[in-house]
């Protein structure tokens, strides 16, 4: 393929990747920023979202768009509630101790993964695209649905930014993130905020899952790679920074897309991980992270 179209294709692939990655990473970043815990089970919430999307859409016959829209409504709620429940049952009892929660979320990771395996089986589950249109771009074809994924992710990110910066709920989250003790002194129910944030983080990842399943199929082992990439994004972008997370997701997503296409996907992963090392050495708080005093 000629260089121009090659680059166009790689960029488009990279954008799709970046769109979904920014949603997953945003969920992880939100949980870390507000609760100061590392959620190792985050990728499994994403996987759970993907498998439940298949499950929900398998109930709906006829136009695949109906099942997809239903999943878009229901799946984030189910996954969010699962996360709320696991916070209520486990994490809150650990007093959100950073080390203990890492171990606990590793446990949650295995519980969710094995639950998915035992309930839905080991096979990859295909979900039909809500609309099956192939755009012929002369040199190559590209699914119109992939543009829809990019578009939806942008809308969703804008909505999250609006909520965070313009609403009272956003203010409460930001206050808790900035200084949870002072926030509590001002009457903010910290434990409820934590509970909601943990659910919200998982729900945002689940939206990413609903969007990606018609492209990638749901499988019980699919949570590992997005978790790794989300960590990379969050570290590069600066923990807890919305702007940084999105910028880093685009950087990692695009470079993953372009390097994968031109060289190999393994080199893309190696370079992304190297970038983390460089960022940690030069700017330990991430590109957009603020230094804590």
């Amino acid at each position: 393929m000629e260089l121009g179209p090659y680059l166009l294709f790689a960029s488009l692939e990279g954008l799709v990747h970046a769109a979904v990655l920014s949603l997953i990473a945003l969920g992880l970043s939100l949980v870390f920023g507000v609760m100061r815990i590392v959620n190792v089970a985050h990728g499994e919430f994403f996987m759970l979202g993907a498998i439940i999307t298949w499950w929900v859409s398998s109930f709906v016959s006829g136009n695949p768009a109906i099942g997809f829209l239903l999943a878009l409504l229901v799946v984030p709620i189910i996954v969010g509630m699962t996360a709320v429940l696991s916070d209520w049952l486990i994490l809150r009892h650990l007093k959100y101790d950073p080390e203990a929660t890492i171990i606990a979320t590793i446990g949650i990771l295995y519980i969710i993964q094995q639950f998915a395996l035992m309930t839905f089986g080991p096979d990859a589950k295909p979900v039909e695209q809500p609309f099956n249109i192939r755009l012929d771009l002369y040199w190559f074809g590209f699914s119109a649905y992939k543009f829809f994924v990019i578009f939806s992710a942008i809308i969703l990110l804008l909505a999250i930014w609006l909520v965070m910066s313009k609403t009272k709920f956003g203010l409460i989250l930001r206050a808790t993130q900035l200084d949870s003790e002072t926030a509590q002194a001002f009457g903010i129910p910290i434990s409820r905020v934590y509970n909601i944030v943990f659910g919200l983080g998982a729900a945002i990842a689940a939206v990413g899952a609903v969007l990606i399943v018609p492209i990638q199929q749901a499988h019980y082992l699919m949570g590992g790679e997005p978790l790794l990439l989300a960590f990379i994004v969050v570290i590069i972008g600066g923990l807890g920074s919305l702007k940084g997370t999105v910028a880093a997701a685009i950087l990692i997503g695009m470079s993953d897309g372009i390097i994968s296409v031109f060289f190999s996907p393994n080199i893309a992963k190696i370079l992304a991980t190297l970038l983390v090392v460089v960022v940690l050495i030069i700017k330990p708080n991430g590109l957009f992270g603020t230094t804590k005093t």
């Binding site: 790689a10 096979d123 990859a124 295909p126 492209i215 990638q216 699919m222 296409v261």
Partner: peptide, 27 residues
């Protein structure tokens, strides 16, 4: 789990694409 990024490596003057794939993502 996703394959599109490999396809541009297939040269334009290819007459026959010989494909063999395994794993859960073959569809």
């Amino acid at each position: 789990s996703s394959f599109s990024k490999y396809f541009p490596k297939i040269p334009r003057d290819t007459e026959v694409l010989y494909h063999v794939m395994v794993g859960p993502a073959v569809l």
